[in-house]
């Protein structure tokens, strides 16, 4: 049943949030410290375990996959309900931070590509690229 998947997701979500909030309390910062991340790790772990045991069938998985497929529309809805009017003064920050981070990442490609490079990592040869 699909609801099993959704219930598993809900369980992991709440437990993850709980962990994040407890961690926040523990270090005396009353915030959620990485709750969503913990929840993701929990879901990865439990679904891996359950699948191995054969307790998680594809039917249950579709319950989770639906929510995973709908996250972009949800982010769009979120974007439409933010206080953009007040944020417009920060437009330059967004532009610089976003562009700067991307360019810095790109610049590191040649350096990090050297890690574990093998001989068969030669360039893919085809002529179709670069024309778009």
């Amino acid at each position: 049943m699909k609801i099993y998947g959704v219930a598993l997701l809900a369980g992991c979500f709440l437990l993850g949030k709980l962990m994040g909030n407890l961690l926040g309390k523990l270090i005396q910062i009353n915030n959620d410290i990485g709750g969503v991340g913990f929840a993701m790790l929990l879901l990865m772990g439990t679904s891996f375990y359950l699948r191995k045991r054969g307790w998680l069938n594809t039917e249950s998985e579709t319950g989770i996959r639906f929510w995973s497929a709908i996250y972009i529309p949800i982010v769009v809805a979120m974007a439409a309900t933010l206080n953009v009017t007040a944020a417009i003064t920060g437009g330059a920050v967004a532009l610089l931070a976003g562009a700067g981070a991307t360019i810095a990442g790109m610049a590191l490609v040649p350096l990090l590509s050297k890690i574990g490079k093998t001989k068969n990592d030669s360039p893919i040869k085809n002529k179709a690229h670069g024309d778009r």
């Binding site: 990485g34 206080n83 953009v84 920060g90 976003g98």
Partner: peptide
């Protein structure tokens, strides 16, 4: 939202990600 910042700062962070 985990750190409880205001909506306009979240908007800036979304915009930064879109720029990326």
């Amino acid at each position: 939202s985990a750190l409880g910042v205001s909506s306009d700062v979240i908007a800036i962070s979304v915009a930064a990600g879109v720029v990326k």
